[in-house]
Amino acid sequence: MTLEIKNLTKQYNQQKTGLSDFSITIDKGVLGLLGPNGAGKSTLMKIIATISKPTRGTLFLNGEDIAKNPDSIRKILGYLPQDFGVYPNLNAYEFLEYIAAMKGVGGPGLRKRIDMLLDGVNLTADARRPIGSYSGGMKQRIGIAQTLLNDPKVLIFDEPTVGLDPEERVRFRDLISEMASEAIVILSSHIVSDIETIADEVAIMKSGKLIDKAIPSAIIGRIENRVFETTIAHTDLEAFKARHQVINTSRQAEKTQLRYISNATEMEAGARNVTAGLEDVYLFLTQNQH
């Protein structure tokens, strides 16, 4: 299964562009989308989900034009938007049965699938409670469950781990990993560690454009041997920033501990070379691209 996106542009008005000549090919597995606010991640996912139409460009799923035939993707789509809403008076069973009816999912196996999904998102014990009484994280988990109701082959998750505690984030990653071999999974998150752990490929976006796309190790390799840590006096920080790209600082009692990227051939006094991570290269690429 392959999703081909070519020269996609979304122009909201003369001042605002959501996507600009965006092209990407997405195969089975998990694609992690990273980018600052306004990068175009949600715009891209809404267009793939056929909720929004592009101004220009084409989208093909296995050679089928999604814009001309949106049902070709809708029937195999699972989508969790960032602003997912629930019906507060329904319990989890009632809500998922309602969403299943909306998606045209039914039959004798439906209840078994709902039970399986509720167990997968750790909501079995609370399934009879009204969703309005759920915490934010629990509502997010019921949103994840409804995304999976129709056994989708294209899954789109926009910030799915917001509100989830670390244990639930691991549970979500395990759930998605099980499905990724048979489906296209597009996952947007501000939690870089989630992307680094689960993604087969990573796409980094900024200002509606694709900056880079590769497997995580290849993207991290862009700054191999260029990430350092050191501790300096507070008063030296601004001068240090003028020489290097500082990507993280931690203020201590008398010093500032910082992590930075450098092209310099000579290492700063007292600095040590450290292993680069996805967050390092993400900050490096998004802060350096205009």
Results as ranks from 00 to 15, higher is better:
M1L: 10
K6H: 10
Y12D: 10
Y12L: 11
Q15M: 05
G18H: 07
I26H: 06
L33N: 11
G35A: 04
G35V: 08
K41T: 02
K41D: 01
S52L: 15
K53S: 13
R56S: 10
L59E: 02
L59Q: 03
E64I: 14
D65M: 09
I66G: 05
I66R: 08
I66D: 01
A67S: 12
I76M: 02
L80S: 08
L96R: 07
I99T: 12
A100M: 11
G104Q: 04
V105E: 15
G106V: 07
P108T: 08
R111H: 14
D115E: 13
D115Q: 04
G120T: 00
A127Q: 10
Y134H: 03
Q140L: 01
R141M: 04
Q146R: 15
P152N: 10
I156D: 06
D158E: 06
L164S: 03
R171W: 02
F172H: 05
F172W: 05
L175R: 05
L175I: 04
A180I: 00
I186W: 07
L187W: 06
S188D: 10
H190K: 02
V192I: 15
T197H: 12
K209C: 09
I211K: 07
A218D: 15
A218R: 15
E224S: 15
E224N: 15
R226T: 11
R226D: 09
V227P: 08
T230R: 09
A233G: 14
I247K: 00
R251S: 12
L258A: 01
I261W: 10
G270K: 06
R272D: 01
A276G: 09
V281E: 00
L283W: 01
T286W: 07
N288I: 00
